[in-house]
């Protein structure tokens, strides 16, 4: 599945929910399913700055695809990072960097989150793109 197809799938799931309590319930479920980061990477080095709850993100390159794993001490935050991981993990750096992540706008997540949490989301996206960029350069070498 391409990133765009995955985004579409997430959008369809979200469109089933009538109110934000249901959307939060889904985010919490997603948070619980998040592919957890290996304990050894749950260190300050992999902490994303700019989040009020702690978020660790790790990326590995396997067969030319970036695999993301993450964790957070807050489960809704885990759900949010999980959405990104779901959409972007397992794709080539080029694809990740080209993804427009329009689904976040459609879900209305950014507008709905408190400003501090919205900033946290922006930080997560930046960190994901940084990893993709680094692996893109590494692959060219």
């Amino acid at each position: 599945m391409t990133i765009a197809e995955k985004e579409q799938e997430i959008l369809e799931t979200f469109s089933m929910f009538e109110d934000w309590m249901d959307k939060y319930a889904y985010l919490i479920e997603l948070g619980k399913e998040l592919p957890l980061i290996d304990q050894q990477y749950k260190t300050n080095q992999y902490l994303i700055s700019g989040c009020q709850s702690r978020v660790w993100l790790y990326a590995d390159l396997m067969d030319g695809k970036v695999i993301f794993t993450a964790d957070s001490d807050a489960v809704i935050t885990k759900g949010i990072v999980s959405l990104l991981v779901k959409a972007l993990s397992g794709h080539a750096p080029d694809e990740i960097l080209k993804a427009d992540l329009g689904f976040l706008e459609v879900i209305g997540l950014k507008e709905h989150l408190s400003p501090t949490r919205a900033n946290g989301l922006t930080s997560m996206i930046k960190q994901i793109q940084l990893y993709a960029k680094a692996y893109q350069i590494k692959m060219k070498q």
Partner: peptide
């Protein structure tokens, strides 16, 4: 076992 931000977010939602 529950992060205060999670609890606060849902309380606000309600």
């Amino acid at each position: 076992g529950i992060h205060p931000y999670d609890l606060g977010t849902l309380l606000d939602q309600m």
